[in-house]
Every structure is written in structure tokens, then in C-alpha cells.
């Protein structure tokens, strides 16, 4: 038996497919459920928010300290990640061989590692009695746990891989021809990197830094394990939200709203400049 072949679509019908992009229902329904699933909890925050008491809660010293600390430490962690992560991404992108493949895997490990495990590992290495930490303490009398520097270390550990992987692929896809041209014209390797390669990957650097910053801002597990919890010193917003949930859920909701607002502001403010141009390339 021969099946009747379907009528060929008219050009107009084809245009309507691309124009309106109406999804067939087996795609549309899961898509709608997926979108609802992601948006509903955020809506829940808005609905349950103690709008009237909001100002009072947010004027609280602990909250202000937590917010400032979070903004400061996430920014500092991003700065450290840029300083160390850009060269690391470059090395990973430009090297070949088994060792570098292994290194690439290991560097991105914190991406999949539960952050709290990262915190435990940091404590065992950089803690006061840790492998490296004990020498820091003995020689300089300097210990990382329970300090704001410890928070930055924990956040950098968890967030830097986001910057590294974003940049590594950018370095890979950057036009080597331009670098070679600059090199043949007599520029040193460092000058080529600074004047040619870096500008080429600038959009990716921006996107990577934003991702890194956002991840650092939300860091919880490694921070509470490695840096402990003390208001104004190591108690970042996520810690404050978690701990407030035990005693004052309204305050936890208010704090969550602040984090939500910060996240939206970051996305909205930087999308055009960085992510947008990064995607357009």
C-alpha cells in the first residue's frame, strides 16, 4: 500500500511557521510547565513578602552588613578570579596534550563539586591546622577561616571555574591569524596577548565575570564551612537567609527579595553590554 504523500506546503504556510513559531503541543506543554516551574517560586516570594515590614527588616544592621559584605566579597572574588583565571584560561586554551586535558578537567571540577565539599577541602588545606594554613599561621600569624578574606577565598574557589571555562572557549575561537600578524610585525608575546588577544575576548571576559560574580554572590556551602558565620564579617546574604529561616521566616523572605532584586539588576544592567554582544558574535 502506498501512503499518499503530504501536500507540499505553500510558501505562505512555511513563512507562518518561522514567523509565528507556534510550537506543536508535545513541545509547548512541557515548555509551559518548565517555565511555570522556574517562575512560580519567584512569584511565591513576591506574594508572601512582608511588604509593610520590609523597610523595617531591611534597615536592620545585620541585613545591611550582610548585603554590603556580599557585594564586597563577590566583587573581590571576581577580581581575584579575573587576575588568576584569565591567564589560566589562556594556558588551557593554548596548550595541547594529555596533561593539559587532565588539568582542564581538574580546574573545572569545582563546577560539579558540591560547594560544601569545597569548603571542607579548603579548611583542610588553608585552615589554621591545614597543610598550607599552618605555615601561614606559624610564619605570619595569619589565618583565613572566620575572616572576610576567607569568604573571598571560598567564593573564588567555587566561582572562578565559570570564568575560566567561558574564557577558555573564547581564547580557542579567537582568530589566531591576528595574533600571528602582530607577532610577525615584531610585537612581543605579552604585547600580543595584551593588545590583540585580550580585546578579542573582551565580551567573553565580561560574560564570564558576570557569571562568576553571580555565582560568588550566591555562594553558601563553601562559605559557611570554611569561613564560619559571623555578622558583618563572614555572614553573607545567603547565610543570613538560611539562618533567618530558622527564627524569622519573614526576614528570610525580605532578604531573599533583596537578592532577587540584585540578580535582576545585574542581568538587566549587563545583558545588553556583555551577554548581548557575546551572543551576537
Amino acid at each position: 500500500m502506498v501512503l499518499p504523500s503530504p501536500e507540499p506546503r505553500s510558501a505562505q504556510q512555511v513563512r507562518s511557521l518561522t514567523d509565528r513559531g507556534r510550537a506543536p503541543w508535545p513541545l509547548a506543554i512541557p515548555a509551559a510547565i518548565g517555565a511555570t516551574f522556574l517562575l512560580l517560586p519567584l512569584l511565591g516570594l513576591l506574594v508572601r513578602a512582608p511588604w509593610r515590614g520590609l523597610l523595617r527588616i531591611l534597615a536592620d544592621d545585620t541585613v545591611r552588613q550582610a548585603l554590603l559584605l556580599s557585594l564586597f566579597s563577590a566583587t573581590a572574588a571576581t577580581a581575584v578570579a579575573v587576575v588568576l583565571g584569565v591567564p589560566l584560561a589562556w594556558v588551557l586554551a593554548r596548550s595541547t596534550g594529555r596533561a593539559s586535558a587532565l588539568l582542564r578537567g581538574l580546574v573545572t571540577l569545582p563546577l560539579v563539586l558540591p560547594p560544601v565539599v569545597g569548603g571542607v577541602a579548603l579548611l583542610l588545606v588553608l585552615g589554621r591546622t591545614g597543610l598550607v594554613g599552618r605555615w601561614l599561621d606559624a610564619w605570619f600569624g595569619f589565618t583565613l577561616p572566620f575572616t572576610t578574606a576567607g569568604v573571598v577565598v571560598a567564593e573564588t574557589f567555587v566561582a572562578m571555574p565559570f570564568l575560566v571555562i567561558t574564557l577558555e572557549s573564547a581564547f580557542r575561537s579567537a582568530d589566531r591569524g591576528l595574533e600571528e600578524a602582530a607577532f610577525t610585525l615584531g610585537a612581543s608575546r605579552l604585547t600580543v596577548f595584551r593588545r590583540v588577544t585580550l580585546p578579542l575576548v573582551a565580551p567573553a571576559l565580561g560574560a564570564g565575570a558576570v557569571l562568576c560574580w553571580a555565582r560568588a554572590l550566591g555562594e553558601f556551602g563553601a562559605t559557611i564551612t570554611f569561613a564560619g558565620n559571623f555578622p558583618g564579617k563572614t555572614q553573607t546574604m545567603p547565610l543570613a537567609v538560611y539562618l533567618a529561616m530558622e527564627t524569622d521566616p519573614e526576614a528570610a523572605i525580605a532578604l531573599s527579595l533583596v537578592l532577587l532584586a540584585v540578580s535582576i539588576a545585574v542581568l538587566a544592567g549587563l545583558r545588553e553590554r556583555w551577554l548581548g554582544s557575546g551572543a551576537a558574535r
Binding site: 589560566l88 596548550s95 596533561a99 593539559s100 588539568l103 581538574l106 577541602a121
Partner: peptide, 18 residues
């Protein structure tokens, strides 16, 4: 690279032990 690789191997070993 070799230094970095060694450091990374060490770091993971520690992470795994932890």
C-alpha cells in the same frame, strides 16, 4: 604546565580525601 598539573592533581587528591 607541568607545575600547574601537579598542583591540580594535588588539589583534587586533597578534595577527594576531604
Amino acid at each position: 604546565y607541568r607545575h600547574l598539573a601537579a598542583a591540580a592533581v594535588l588539589a583534587t587528591a586533597l578534595a577527594t580525601t576531604a
